[in-house]
Simulated scan of single mutants.
Amino acid sequence: MQPCKTDLARDALQAHRAPLAMRQRRLLILCDGQRDLAQLTAMIGPEAPAMVIQLIQAGYLVSMAPAEPAPPAAVVPAAPPSAAAPTTTPAPATERRRSMVAARIYLIGILELQRHPQAAVLLRTLQQARNDEQVVAALRGALDALPGMTSPGYCERVRQRLFEVLPETRLAELEQAGVIPG
């Protein structure tokens, strides 16, 4: 299944006042009809499939491909009966979410929502970045410019989410550059 935003979702993301939790907003930003459920689960975490179903039922998402059968998904959670498996699973999921790719995709989604000419330039710069140093430079440029394109509260929420997904080493680089108050 490749979920895609509806007009209701686009309106909700632009209004910033929709009755959506932050994790639901993040998922909506990532649902572009290009990513399948497995990719979204890798970026958001194991709760992504349930959130996708909730957002489809609420009218925020539509499925671009036939839904996968539910029985295999129901068998997977029932299969690991040991207590050791759940304790080891959350740590890798958290680590997996901290990545340059997740940070890049998140900020690309944010920049796509902005109706500012500078956002389009920053978006292209971020899309064309080919290595981690270029991505960090593009992230820094976007974070510096974002306060001029949106409200301070929204800008701060974007910063916080970006800092949640950036790898620790890259986070330290942005702190040294003064993007993050030390």
Rank of each mutant, 00 (worst) to 15 (best):
M1C: 11
C4V: 15
C4D: 12
T6A: 06
A12D: 00
Q14W: 10
A15L: 13
A15Y: 07
H16Q: 13
A21T: 11
A21C: 08
A21K: 15
M22P: 08
R23H: 11
L28Y: 01
L30G: 00
C31K: 01
C31R: 00
D36E: 07
D36S: 07
L40P: 00
T41M: 08
T41H: 05
M43A: 13
E47M: 09
A48Q: 01
A48T: 01
A50N: 11
M51W: 04
V52I: 11
L55Q: 04
I56E: 02
Y60C: 04
Y60T: 00
Y60K: 01
L61I: 13
L61Y: 04
S63W: 00
S63F: 06
A65L: 15
A70N: 08
P71L: 10
V75Q: 13
P77W: 04
P77R: 08
A78N: 09
A78H: 09
P80A: 05
P81I: 09
A85M: 13
T87C: 15
T87V: 15
T88N: 11
P90G: 08
A91G: 12
A91V: 12
P92I: 11
P92L: 12
T94V: 14
E95F: 15
R96S: 14
R97C: 10
R97N: 05
S99H: 05
S99C: 10
M100Y: 07
V101P: 14
A103M: 05
R104H: 09
R104C: 07
Y106G: 06
Y106C: 05
I110A: 07
E112Q: 12
E112M: 10
L113Y: 06
R115G: 14
P117I: 02
Q118I: 10
A119N: 06
A119Q: 02
A119F: 00
A119I: 06
A120Q: 12
A120W: 11
V121P: 03
L122A: 11
L123A: 06
T125E: 15
L126A: 05
Q127G: 09
Q128V: 13
A129F: 01
R130K: 14
N131K: 13
N131Q: 14
D132F: 05
Q134I: 05
V136H: 02
A138E: 01
L139E: 01
G141I: 06
G141M: 07
A142Q: 01
A142P: 04
A142S: 09
L143M: 13
L146E: 02
G148W: 08
M149C: 07
S151V: 11
P152N: 12
Y154T: 08
C155I: 05
R159G: 03
R161T: 10
L162V: 04
L162R: 01
L162G: 04
E164V: 03
P167K: 05
P167T: 07
E168V: 15
E168M: 12
T169C: 12
R170P: 00
A172D: 11
E173K: 08
E173G: 05
E175L: 09
E175W: 03
Q176P: 08
G178F: 04
I180L: 15
G182Y: 14
